Amino acid sequence: MQGGELRISPVGSKQALDDFIDLPYRLYADDPNWVPPLRADVAELLNPEKNPFYGHAEGQLFLARRAGRVVGRISAHIDKLALAQPVEQGMGPGTGNWGMLDAEDEATAKALIATAEDWLKSRGMTRVLGPLSLSVWDEPGVLVKGFDHPPTVMMGHAKTEYHQWIESSGYQTVQELFTYALVIDRDFPELTNRIVAIGEKNDRIKIRRVDKRKFNDEAALILGILNDAWSDNWGFVPLTEAEIAYVGKKLKPIVYEDLIRIAEVDGEPVAFMMTLPDINEKIKSFGGKLFPFNWAKLLWWLRKPQVRTMRVPLMGVVKKLQASRMASQLAFMMIEYIRRDAITKFGASRGEFGWVLGSNGPMRSVGEAVGGTVNKVYRIYEKTL
């Protein structure tokens, strides 16, 4: 598609892919709150031979150029597993996605969005849900609140104008995602502490650390609980066995036994909480590059990270317990136990909980009950094609 000097073309060469990956490093160069992702990680995300997402999805990357200069990018993709989900859960038949939108100006952004829509329509899609970069498990939504501080590990950032450009392209809000910031180097509210104390007297409950010596088994157990716990959530798409193995391999370097808990009731694993040290605090100055010297700095840091912030990206309780008091009790117990270790062993003073769906009242209540306040909001939009 061409408009004036603007030309948009599909990414079809290694040079074009490099240009696609490199663009944000230029656009955000002066943004003190942007954390440059490691280029190797972005390249792997977009590589169909390495990312198992492409085992059930197809996609196309697009670049916008003006007078030969790259001025924007976007991805368009169709997830076959998402197409098979119930319509009432947000995905469903005919729903395609776009994501990874970056642009110098509104005209470029709108042209890129229109190009992604055309690609989706040409493949029979009748509705678009976005931004998703690439799946709901990666970086869903565009930032609409919380531009004044950097994102934590595995969370996205955006320019303040992006959500306005999306809305002016005819999109309506379909879901918001919240993250909660909380101070963790002081005791949680008394009500939470009482609930934890009661749970500690219950012989049916056992809260244990993960065993990294059995990493593959523990990862499969946790993600199995996740698939069950989140299966009724808006936007849910099940993780495949290949994705579970892939996620486990990617997370292993920043997984620490003291920061992940599995809850058992009557000997059955029924809940988990995963906490990650905010690696963004370390890599922010790397400029997206590990070589020649940053890899050594990172490896040394990973031996025993000392961080200000811990992030809880994943937490789940099996469906059969979700309507019970036990579910909240298990959640508070895992949060409290991890809080103690995060302070004493990793030097943390701050936590971030989320993202949490705006429609997930119980989990939002947990975030508020431990003293959390919303510090970032991401928005997902929909449009009929």
Rank of each mutant, 00 (worst) to 15 (best):
A229E: 00
V210Y: 00
R209Y: 06
D203H: 11
E241C: 06
K206P: 02
I205C: 01
I207R: 05
V196P: 03
L221S: 10
A220D: 11
T240W: 02
L221M: 15
A242Y: 05
E200Q: 13
K212H: 08
I198S: 13
A242G: 02
L226R: 08
R204M: 04
K214E: 14
S231W: 00
D211F: 11
E241Y: 03
P238C: 06
K201I: 06
A229Y: 08
K201E: 13
N202P: 04
A197Q: 15
I205E: 10
L226M: 15
E200S: 09
V196C: 04
I205R: 08
G224E: 03
R209V: 09
R209E: 13
V237S: 00
L239Q: 04
P238E: 01
I222V: 12
A242I: 01
K212Y: 08
L221C: 11
E241A: 14
V237W: 01
V210L: 09
K212F: 10
F215R: 09
L226Y: 15
D228I: 00
S231T: 05
N233G: 06
V196S: 01
K201C: 09
N227Y: 00
L226S: 13
A220E: 13
N193E: 15
P238V: 03
A229T: 02
L223S: 06
D211K: 15
L226D: 11
R213S: 13
E200D: 12
N193K: 15
R204Y: 07
N216F: 08
I225W: 05
N233Q: 08
T240H: 06
P238R: 04
E200H: 09
I205M: 10
S231P: 03
D217E: 15
K201L: 13
W234I: 01
R213N: 13
D203M: 08
T192S: 12
D232Q: 11
T192N: 06
I222N: 07
P238T: 07
I198D: 12
V237I: 14
N202L: 10
R209Q: 14
T240I: 01
I205H: 01
I207H: 00
F236P: 02
K212V: 11
I195H: 03
G235N: 04
I195V: 15
K206W: 09
N227S: 02
V210E: 09
A219N: 13
L221F: 07
K206G: 08
K206D: 11
T240Y: 05
P238N: 05
T192D: 08
G224Y: 02
L191W: 07
G224K: 00
E190Y: 10
I198G: 12
G199H: 03
I205Y: 12
R213A: 13
K214A: 14
E190A: 12
A220H: 11
L223T: 02
N202C: 01
D217H: 10
E190R: 14
I222Y: 09
F236T: 08
R213K: 15
I198M: 14
D211L: 10
E190P: 03
